[in-house]
Design a protein around this nucleic acid. Sequence first.
DNA 1: AAACAACAGGGTAAAAACAGCTTTTCTTAA
DNA 2: TTAAGAAAAGCTGTTTTTACCCTGTTGTTT
Lengths: 217, 217
Amino acid sequence: MQDKRTAIAIVDDHTLFRKGLMSLLAESDEVEILFDASNGLELKKNINAENLPEVILMDINMPQMDGYAATKWVTKTYPSVKVLALSMFDEDKPIIEMLKSGAGGYLLKESKTTELVLAIKTIASHGFYMNNLVSGKLIKSLQDPVPAKSEISEISANELKFLQLSCSELTYKEIADKMNLSPHTIDNYREALFHKFEIRSRTGLVLFAIKNDLIKL
Amino acid sequence: MQDKRTAIAIVDDHTLFRKGLMSLLAESDEVEILFDASNGLELKKNINAENLPEVILMDINMPQMDGYAATKWVTKTYPSVKVLALSMFDEDKPIIEMLKSGAGGYLLKESKTTELVLAIKTIASHGFYMNNLVSGKLIKSLQDPVPAKSEISEISANELKFLQLSCSELTYKEIADKMNLSPHTIDNYREALFHKFEIRSRTGLVLFAIKNDLIKL
DNA sequence: AAACAACAGGGTAAAAACAGCTTTTCTTAA
DNA sequence: TTAAGAAAAGCTGTTTTTACCCTGTTGTTT
């Protein structure tokens, strides 16, 4: 396992983190950093089929092209490249989403250096890195067979706009004015959303929008 | 300015970031890292009056004792120590809060290494480091003379419970039942909150609770 | 005794929730 | 090209909930 360094790339929008990690890993003789990028788009530009990294350390929240999209793209375009997600969040959603997107492992930024190096080596040789975080969420996602919950994508453009305007102290009548629509049409949107997402009140509408990140506070 | 290295400490709960930053700054001959800590509590343990850092790089979100509390404590206990806030967020609230807590500057984690070193040197010699982020927010906070907004602490225990229950699809009548009170009493709470915080609808109540972190999603 | 806060009541008008039905507009497939 | 169907927009109602007003009781503080 010690015959050569593992070639990696780092994708993270926080320059200080990225450069810090590069400096840290440069000290190790286990890995070799080919390049770094501040988001998925930059990764697409910098990655080179002639000199592919074995493992990419991938952040999730990034401008322009985030970790989910970047992981999907890279695992599809270069199937030999493994992705190790590196994030601050230990919540279910990002972990499961990153694994679904094609990541072979998930590590928290609060991990120790030794664990990071171990994860890189493991993922390079076996294709995945299993830790408590990942195995726990995997089991959970198996037990919880994706509630078949109505998808947010089932919302039309107008319904979305209505939903966003509902998260204010405007009355439905005022919302109708703002959207240049009849109050009755607004009422149709309201009912459609109520049925689709099992909501019974305007308060429920607001809560739904917030939980699904459909509005910004 | 080159007669000696600037002594610093790093406080951040993400080990990989912290260690990475240490490795990065170790390459520079401008700074010397005395110690690091993963949160405010650890900082309190590790800091030593005999060998104080000149500048502390301080994260905001940390377990046990966050950046606000840690900055307040350290600037009060050791007035000679300067704090440079280091965060991912470029929003108003954390910036202004950290400056109020005693930080002499605020830098984003997406900054470049050179800017970090410059900020450390500047804050060590002048006590503060001014960049567009900081100056802009400072001006804004001056123009916006803290809206004299009614304090959240003016909420009674029952009003708070009512407010939290309002963030659901329960009707006021059902909330009254849950709290073993008359619907009229609930109506009094509602009116009191409406007047105190200039709210005109139940939706406003929900939005207020969320913005002020009075409920957990 | 006055002032205050918490609780409780009646009444009213507006807004929200719910139901059922018609018209317009846009696909799409015969 | 048009007939059929679906989706979006619109309308008429009714009931329930919310928002707002003012009054009154009780118990505590000053």
